[in-house]
C-alpha cells in the first residue's frame, strides 16, 4: 500500500539481478559437472531437491527460478530461501516485496526465515550464554521478562532466547493465527510487531553480551541487518526500542532513505 512505488522499482532491479544470478549459477554448475560423472543438469529436469548422498558443495545446486514459475504452496518461501542462499547480504533484494505479492505474506515468510536462522544464532550462543554466565535476560540497561509463560517470568538469558524463539515459531505456525500462506488475516498482522519486538531482544542480548558471536554470525548471514531493515520498512519496531547502535555509515544512509520513504508515504 504505502510502498507501491519502491517495490516495483526494486522488483525490476531484482529481476535483472536474478537473471544475472541464474547465469552465474549455471556457469557454476557447468564447472562442477566436470567433476561429477557425466551428470548434466538441465533447468527443467533437475529435481529441486538434495538427493541423499549429495555432497555439501553441491547442495541446493539448482537454478534460481522466477517466483511466477514456482507452483508450490510454498512459493514465496522457496523464492526467499533461494534468494538468501544466493546472497544473504543483498538486503535490498531480499527485503523488496516481489511484484504482485501480498505485503503481509512476504513479511510472514521473512519472519519465518528469520526464526529459522535465529536457531543457528542460538546454537552459536549456547556454549557461551549459559545460565551461569547470563542469569538474567539483559540487553544494555534493559531487563526482560519471558512472556511465553502464563505469567511473565524472569528466565535466564538462554532460556529467554529459546523460549522466545520457540514461542515465535509456534505463533507463526499456528493455523488459527496464520491459516494461509497466501494472505494474512487482518487481525493477525498485529502479531508481526509482537514477534519482531521479541526477536529483536535476541539480537540485542547477543550484541551486548556476546558481541563476538554476534559479529561473526552477522558477517556470515547479515541476519540482524536484514531483520532491522525489514522491521523499519514495515514499521514493526518503534525507533526508540532499537537499542543496537548503527554499525556503519551505510546503515545510517539506509535509515535515512527508509525514513525518507516513510515520510514520503506519509505525505501521500
Amino acid at each position: 500500500m504505502m510502498l507501491t512505488e519502491t517495490p516495483e522499482q526494486e522488483a525490476s532491479k531484482h529481476a535483472k539481478n536474478s537473471s544475472v544470478h541464474q547465469d552465474s549459477s549455471k556457469a557454476n554448475d557447468s564447472n562442477h559437472s566436470t567433476a561429477a560423472d557425466n551428470h548434466v543438469p538441465t533447468a527443467g529436469a533437475h529435481p529441486l531437491r538434495n538427493l541423499p548422498g549429495t555432497k555439501d558443495e553441491k547442495l541446493y545446486q539448482w537454478p534460481q527460478r522466477s517466483l511466477e514459475s514456482i507452483e508450490s504452496a510454498f512459493a514465496l518461501r522457496e523464492y526467499l530461501q533461494a534468494l538468501i542462499r544466493q546472497d544473504p547480504h543483498n538486503l535490498d533484494l531480499l527485503i523488496a516485496l516481489p511484484a504482485g505479492q501480498d505485503e503481509h505474506s512476504w513479511l510472514y515468510e521473512h519472519l519465518c526465515q528469520i526464526c529459522l536462522e535465529l536457531n543457528y544464532l542460538i546454537v552459536h550462543l549456547e556454549p557461551e550464554c549459559t545460565p551461569e554466565a547470563c542469569p538474567e535476560m539483559r540487553a544494555e540497561e534493559w531487563k526482560y521478562f519471558c512472556a511465553t509463560h502464563p505469567t511473565p517470568r524472569e528466565c535466564c538469558a538462554i532460556d529467554y532466547l529459546t523460549h522466545t524463539l520457540d514461542g515465535a515459531s509456534a505463533l507463526l505456525n499456528n493455523v488459527k493465527v496464520f491459516p494461509s500462506r497466501i494472505c494474512v488475516p487482518e487481525g493477525s498482522v498485529k502479531n508481526f510487531q509482537n514477534i519482531a519486538r521479541r526477536l529483536y531482544r535476541i539480537f540485542a542480548h547477543a550484541y551486548f553480551h556476546h558481541r563476538d558471536i554476534f559479529d561473526a554470525f552477522e558477517a556470515e548471514t547479515s541476519l540482524y541487518e536484514r531483520f532491522l531493515r525489514l522491521s523499519r520498512t514495515r514499521q514493526l519496531i518503534t525507533e526508540k526500542l532499537i537499542i543496537i547502535p548503527g554499525q556503519s555509515n551505510e546503515d545510517d544512509t539506509t535509515h535515512a532513505s527508509t525514513k525518507q520513504i516513510m515520510a514520503r508515504s506519509r505525505d501521500e
Partner: peptide
C-alpha cells in the same frame, strides 16, 4: 487434531 501441539523439547546444536 489439527492443532497446536507443542514439542516438549527442541534440540538445537546443528548448524
Amino acid at each position: 487434531l489439527n492443532g497446536e501441539v507443542d514439542p516438549i523439547h527442541t534440540y538445537r546444536g546443528h548448524t
